[in-house]
Simulated scan of single mutants.
Amino acid sequence: MKRNDLRRIDLNLLVVFEVLIQERNVTRAARRLSMGQPAVSGALRRLRALFNDPLFERAGREMQPTPRAISVAQALGPALDCVCSVIGNTKA
C-alpha cells in the first residue's frame, strides 16, 4: 500500500483495534472508547474487511486474537506511539 492510499482508510479504526486487542471484549472496548457497542462492532466489521482476516474469534466471553491480529498489534503499537509523539511535539 502506498501512503497516498491511506486517505481511503479511517485511521480511527486503528485506535479501536488497539483497544480491542487490550480488552478482548467489544462491550469493554466500547466503554473505554466512549462509543456505543454497535459502533465498535461496526468498526470491527470494517477492520476485518481491511485486513481480510477475522482478527478475533469468540472464546466464551472473550475474543481471542488471530495470529494476523497479533502480528498487526505488534507493529501497530509502536506506530501509534510514534504518531502521538510527533503530534505531541508539534502542539504549541
Rank of each mutant, 00 (worst) to 15 (best):
A92G: 11
I87V: 13
F56Q: 01
G88S: 15
P65T: 00
E62Y: 11
R28V: 06
I70V: 14
L13T: 04
L76T: 04
C82P: 12
R68F: 04
A30W: 03
A79C: 05
C82V: 13
A39V: 10
G77T: 14
M1N: 11
A79Y: 05
C82N: 13
R24C: 08
L33A: 01
F56W: 07
R32S: 05
N25C: 12
D5T: 11
P54C: 11
R32T: 00
S41I: 10
A79R: 04
V83D: 10
G60A: 05
A75C: 10
L47T: 00
G42N: 06
L20H: 00
F51L: 02
D10C: 02
I21N: 00
F56M: 09
V26I: 11
R24F: 12
I21Q: 00
G42K: 02
P78Y: 01
N12H: 11
N52G: 13
R7F: 11
A43C: 09
V40N: 02
N4P: 07
L76V: 00
L47F: 02
G88W: 07
A92M: 12
D53Y: 01
Q37M: 10
T27R: 13
R32V: 00
R32P: 03
G88F: 07
L47A: 01
L76W: 00
M63D: 02
D5R: 12
E23I: 00
S41C: 13
R28F: 09
L11S: 11
G36P: 02
D5V: 07
S41K: 10
G42I: 02
I9D: 11
L20E: 00
L20V: 02
R46P: 04
S71R: 15
P54G: 10
R31L: 15
L76C: 02
Q64G: 08
T27F: 14
Q74P: 03
K2R: 13
V72L: 04
N89D: 12
P38K: 05
D10V: 07
L6F: 08
L13D: 02
I9M: 08
N12T: 11
R28N: 09
N12R: 08
L14S: 08
M63Y: 12
G60N: 08
F51K: 01
T27S: 15
R28A: 13
V16N: 04
V83G: 06
K2D: 10
N25K: 15
A75V: 06
P67R: 06
Q22K: 09
P78R: 01
D81K: 09
S34T: 10
L47Q: 03
K2C: 01
E62M: 15
F17Y: 06
Q64L: 14
F56T: 05
I9E: 09
R68T: 11
R58F: 14
L11K: 07
V86C: 04
R28S: 09
V86P: 01
Q64C: 14
R3H: 13
R68K: 14
